[in-house]
């Protein structure tokens, strides 16, 4: 049996050093490889958010009860969402800052919807390491810039929720949202 294999192998080597068995080996291994990858894809994909999680991925918020100077905490994609009704003084203080002084330069206009500058909608997730900053509920510390203050590592945000001091690299994220009426927003 062994000698038989050697004979046919030598015969094949004569044809340019490539044996027919090499082709079979490569073809079989490739076939198995393609099969393994196509099975691996669903096995990996199953860990992505499922359809029911994605279906809950947008939130409607009614703003009518929020008075100037108040904010509310709600949930968007299982994370805290801050909706803040800015007072004219807070708007003025946000607009007074020069963009060149900011770590993540953005104006209040860019962070709000046109004509709705008083409504500041941001995620309540510190851009440093994901804690919930204080300042959205009454009685909480708002930090030295009057916006939000993260108790974990001391990041301070101003009245436009822009990073002013501390380790956080970015302003609080403004999620995609739109006004469906004057007092209702749809987030996501």
């Amino acid at each position: 049996m062994a000698s038989l294999t050697e004979d046919s192998a030598t015969a094949d080597v004569d044809q340019g050093g490539v044996r027919r068995r090499d082709f079979i080996n490569v073809a079989a291994a490739s076939f198995a490889g393609v099969g393994a990858v196509s099975v691996a894809l669903p096995l990996i994909n199953q860990m992505n958010p499922s359809a029911d999680v994605l279906a809950e991925a947008s939130t409607e918020v009614d703003l009518s009860a929020i008075q100037p100077g108040q904010s509310i905490k709600t949930m968007f994609r299982k994370q805290p969402l801050f909706v803040r009704h800015l007072t004219p003084a807070e708007i003025a203080s946000a607009e007074a800052v020069s963009l060149s002084d900011l770590r993540d330069p953005q104006s209040l206009e860019e962070r709000t919807k046109p004509g709705k500058t008083q409504w500041l909608v941001t995620m309540g997730v510190c851009t440093h390491l994901g804690c919930v900053p204080l300042g959205a509920s009454s009685g909480e510390v708002k930090g030295e810039f009057g916006g939000y203050f993260c108790p974990c590592h001391g990041s301070s945000y101003d009245t436009a929720a822009r990073i002013r001091k501390g380790p956080a690299p970015k302003n609080l994220e403004v999620p995609p949202y739109e006004f469906t009426s004057d007092t209702v927003i749809k987030v996501g």
């Binding site: 669903p42 199953q46 499922s50 359809a51 029911d52 999680v53």
Partner: peptide
């Protein structure tokens, strides 16, 4: 939920 919502859940 596995059959309907989870990605490729029916397959698994």
């Amino acid at each position: 939920h596995i059959m309907r919502d989870v990605n490729a859940g029916w397959f698994l």
